[in-house]
């Protein structure tokens, strides 16, 4: 758990950091942050509870408890990471623990869009490459320099060509991932849509 947390802000083009590997398919958001920690009205204290139950079960041997991972910020995962509920508390907890980017075989839809919305790029790599990184990372520290514009992750020994949706990449590079202001720019179009939707006309007594 890092001492100081600052939310990402503005354009994101470069992420540098040590990797932390978490092995397993279909790791769901209940595991990332169990529901009892959702009883809060802000996200601030979630970082310490990330993977709480898995960590307790593994009694200090969970990757998020290992001393050598304590400064890591790039999470390496397998397939369908973040499946299950829409709770943004899951990526928020990861981010507040110190995660700044995630590389995996695949991600669940809502988890992925939640990550974008809070400024955590998620990249995909083929299974073999992910497993290669996880295997390497198992014995040695791995420091990656991620260049978002070129979708490239460089380390001392190897380079990886990362996959990321074009639209997500553009949003990070432009800062548009923090979507509210971009959406508000089209205020006139929103009003027009509101006034023209057929069902809003026959739901005049709606509520």
């Amino acid at each position: 758990m890092k001492s100081e947390f600052t939310s990402p802000i503005g354009k994101i083009s470069q992420i540098n950091g040590e990797c932390i590997s978490l092995i397993g398919n279909d790791i769901d958001t209940d595991r990332i942050i169990p529901a009892r920690f959702l009883k809060c009205i802000n996200f601030e204290s979630l970082g310490e509870s990330v993977f709480e139950d898995d960590r307790k079960t593994l009694k200090g041997r969970h990757p998020f408890d290992l001393e050598e991972n304590k400064n890591a910020s790039i999470l390496i995962v397998n397939s369908n990471f973040g499946c299950g509920s829409s709770r943004e508390h899951a990526p928020q907890a990861l981010m507040r623990w110190g995660i700044k980017a995630i590389i995996g075989e695949s991600f669940a839809d809502i988890f992925y869009s939640n990550c974008i919305a809070i400024g955590i790029p998620c990249f995909t790599l083929p299974k073999e490459s992910v497993q290669h990184i996880q295997k390497y990372n198992n014995n040695k520290r791995l420091f990656l320099n991620i260049d978002l514009k070129n979708s490239l992750a460089k380390s001392k020994d190897a380079n990886f060509h990362l996959e990321i949706k074009d639209s997500s990449k553009k949003m990070f590079l432009s800062g548009e991932w923090d979507a509210t202001s971009t959406l508000l720019e089209n205020e006139n179009l929103i009003e027009k849509k509101y006034n023209n939707l057929p069902y809003l006309k026959f739901n005049t007594h709606f509520l």
């Binding site: 943004e88 508390h89 869009s113 939640n114 919305a117 979507a179 509210t180």
Partner: peptide
């Protein structure tokens, strides 16, 4: 389903 940041966006826009 949407996350909380998107709930914010729906409320605002």
């Amino acid at each position: 389903g949407i996350g909380t940041s998107q709930v914010r966006d729906v409320l605002a826009t």
